[in-house]
Amino acid sequence: MRVLKWTALPVVLIAIWWFATAGSEEFYVPPLQTIIESAPDVWTLDRLRADVLPSLLRLLAGFTLALIIGIALGVLIGGRPRVRATVEPVLEFLRAIPPPVLVPVIMLFAGIGDGMKVLVIVSGCVWPILLNAVEGVRAVDGVLTETARSYGLTGPARLWRLTLPAAGPQIVAGARQALSVAIILMVISEMFAASSGIGFTIVEFQRSFAIPEMWTGIIVLGLLGVLLSGLFRLAETAILGWYHGLRRAQKG
């Protein structure tokens, strides 16, 4: 019964798509059948290796760097009220800049290579992580802090066993926002200037009017988004299992 409820609507929607476009003469909206049939020819292993993998690696590199920088700075700033008050307006401003406009700026500095794309991703992703880390570190429970102090928890142990886990839920919330920004920036930076990558490929198909291929690209990109968010959720469950349990316990 659950499986049925889980699959019913997607099946219906795909069926509607299939039959509504069957025999479609509309150039830009090819039949779903055509799209699906063209997919294996487009997304060969070589193509995956040449276009999808580099995109993913850049995404991973940028996201990881942003995580490290964001958390490190967040811990430094969050624990110091005066520093926090000083830099917060600047950070709020930097966060509010729509990340894609950084693409032209970073192209000035870093050209159009891999470095640029990773830098673009870092520069867009770091703000939600940083600001959430600052807030998470600031809001560590007072009783917990005093407990840690009274048991002599200092230095790295304090960081690993008190500060980071306590700020964890906030940091993860920031990382989740950052991930969707990262995907946007991965695609945008490739649409702007690239000779490979999934964003580049899709735009190429569009420009050369390879419409069914373009549709497959969009579907692949969509699947990538779903896959990445699924992986993120797995990681979140592993890291924040305690937090979700705690929330359920509090709700009773």
């Binding site: 995907i183 946007i184 695609v187 649409m191 964003g199 690209g217 969009i218 990109l221 699924g230």
Partner: peptide
């Protein structure tokens, strides 16, 4: 989770 930028083309 489908990124909206996928819809650009």
């Amino acid at each position: 989770p489908i990124p909206s930028v996928a819809l650009i083309p």
